[in-house]
Design a binder for these strands. Sequence first.
DNA 1: CTATCAAGGATAATTATGATCCGCGTTAAT
DNA 2: ATTAACGCGGATCATAATTATCCTTGATAG
Lengths: 167, 167
Amino acid sequence: MHMKTGVEQSVYAILLLNMLPGKAVLSGEAISQQLNASPTYFQKLLRKLVSADLIVSVPGVKGGFRLKKRPEDICVYDIYLAIEGRQSLYSPSGILGDLLELEKNEYGCLLTDLMNEAETAWKTVMKRETIASLAQKMEEQRYQPKAAELQQWLNEKMLVQERSGNR
Amino acid sequence: MHMKTGVEQSVYAILLLNMLPGKAVLSGEAISQQLNASPTYFQKLLRKLVSADLIVSVPGVKGGFRLKKRPEDICVYDIYLAIEGRQSLYSPSGILGDLLELEKNEYGCLLTDLMNEAETAWKTVMKRETIASLAQKMEEQRYQPKAAELQQWLNEKMLVQERSGNR
DNA sequence: CTATCAAGGATAATTATGATCCGCGTTAAT
DNA sequence: ATTAACGCGGATCATAATTATCCTTGATAG
């Protein structure tokens, strides 16, 4: 039982996108490269984030991805949900039914309520932190030395449509 | 990301053992049969419960398994821990380090604290419910009709050492 | 002694997850 | 218009986690 690594990767991808100025976008390949992850698979992850309305994609030559919401309106849970989906951590397997030969769905499972509560508690914590607060933490921590370098990289890799003001 | 089915199965196995009188035991095969699960695999699960000191095993001819603790001293979390192990739901993959070229373990990951909190919240809920409280719920719910039948089955399958007072 | 039970290692089958490939539609630049 | 860069999405493969089986050993009641 382990959370998909895609969740963490997605968080960082979104943090990257959050550093983009204005209407600029970043290509899927550039992102996966910076995070050194598999480019093709990362594209799939990004797709899920698009479906979840967290980011938008623009096709075509200077295309890429950009945030759809403000950073304070994206929480870690949103990203978790986008990647992991709605299925819950626990789902009863109907053993109790076998055990006591209940009518179908008469009650289901002794653990369901408890597990749902547990999962809700887990999700609640993940709703507290947002991309905005994470970005702030990133700045606060003495990550400064390389931050400028990262910003430089962004300037090189980002793509801007309409007007050619980059690079 | 899904909890192992073994956790649920183990809970029910322990609920069964909880219905045993005195020093009686139930064989691994009988248990797995009642829960209709794979016998050989179930043996492995039971082994983990033994290692976690939740149940005891007795080898030999009339051997089997029996609770080691009182039902009110076994909580769902104990069983979860026995089966799933100590590894946490989330572990950072070091992406941030790549991103900012940090010294090793200088901070690790922006998400670690949050995720640990979330996991703690999840576990806390699982600590609330015990085998005793689950057993009570089982009785309360209108499961009565088949309960007697189950008890009958137990009487047939349970094994008692020293003195032959069963069957 | 023997039949029955758990212990535990090795290994196979199944499923979930991560990753790749390729053809398609869209769009900026030439 | 043509071309090259990009996201889209389906099919497929690879790797890892989980579930299940097999078989040998050791313990013990009868």
